[in-house]
């Protein structure tokens, strides 16, 4: 009973905080609202006894939103008290598409005869996940690892202020790159 109440309170918070993300004028507040939505989803995962994944989602998303708030203030740097924020386009189309998608998904969720539960969860779910990751599902994690590594490299290449393509500026045919500090092998 308590689990059901906690779940529905968390569900309400998740959706309300999600809506608040796009209603608030403050970039920082939008980040905090998104973090609240993620924490609520993490609590719902805990209600499914997914202890490890629930805690991972909560911890990861709180940190992620803290970084996101930093980026938003850094990139936009506006004070909502001085400049109310409403930067949207195609609002009507977006509203119609979102409403149609919600009605379609909700109808499918309610009308499809979902199968009954097959099997029972393991006694220690975190241990069973660890066994799967280090055993039969190791290939999955071995695939995720290079993807994450490629992401680190890709993000660094994109985020670095001066990359190899900027060395030549607009004239890619020029003889020498426009390096602020000459070096290397005599170029």
């Amino acid at each position: 009973m308590i689990g059901t109440i906690v779940f529905w309170v968390a569900a309400l918070v998740a959706v309300a905080a999600g809506v608040e993300v796009f209603r608030t004028d403050s970039m920082a507040r939008a980040s905090y609202a998104l973090a609240a939505s993620f924490v609520a989803v993490g609590v719902m995962l805990l209600a499914f006894e997914l202890d490890y994944l629930g805690v991972i989602v909560i911890l990861m998303m709180v940190m992620e939103m803290a970084i996101m708030a930093l980026f938003m203030i850094m990139l936009m740097g506006m004070n909502p008290a001085l400049m109310p924020m409403s930067m949207v386009h195609g609002k009507r189309t977006a509203t119609v598409v979102a409403a149609v998608v919600f009605v379609g998904l909700a109808a499918a969720a309610l009308l499809i005869p979902w199968p009954d539960r097959a099997g029972a969860p393991a006694a220690d779910l975190t241990r069973s996940l660890g066994d799967a990751v280090m055993g039969s599902k190791m290939l999955v994690m071995l695939t995720v690892s290079p993807v994450l590594f490629a992401t680190i490299i890709g993000a660094l290449v994109l985020g670095h202020p001066r990359d190899r393509y900027q060395r030549y500026g607009d004239d890619l045919e020029r003889d020498h790159p426009d390096d602020p500090i000459q070096g290397g092998v005599g170029r």
Binding site: F7, A11, A14, V15, G18, V19, V21, F22, M27, S37, V41, M44, M68, F71, M72, L75, M76, M87, V88, H89, G90, K91, T93, A94, T95, V97, A98, A99, V101, F102, L105, A106, A108, A109, L110
Partner: peptide
Amino acid sequence: VLVVAAALFAVGLWGALSQQVVV
């Protein structure tokens, strides 16, 4: 639970389609 997930998805879709700021 899937209806709650659908609501979250729809809110996110609205934001992804309508917002102008990349973040």
